[in-house]
Amino acid sequence: MFIIKCPYCGERDHSEFSYGGEAHLIRPKQPTELSDDQWAEYLFMRKNIKGLQYERWNHSHGCRRWFNAARDTSNDKIHSVYKIGEKSSK
């Protein structure tokens, strides 16, 4: 039911977007040098925050671009949206 402001297209209905899970997970540059535990940490472990959460969204039925959003999971308010590689303002 959200209205999401795609950084490329502007405000659009939530039905145009798909959710992509936690943001700012960096794929290890040298995975072979990681222990099983370290790799599992990257591969499986995700935060589940009540409050401001940084997450990935894809404007899948629009420009198809990925971007990040800072959403308060307690009331679903989106406080900022920003392009991949940029930093959140909040």
Binding site: P31, L34, D36
Partner: peptide, 8 residues
């Protein structure tokens, strides 16, 4: 997927 092929 490469690294995962070497998980125990």
């Amino acid at each position: 997927g490469k690294r995962s092929l070497y998980r125990s």
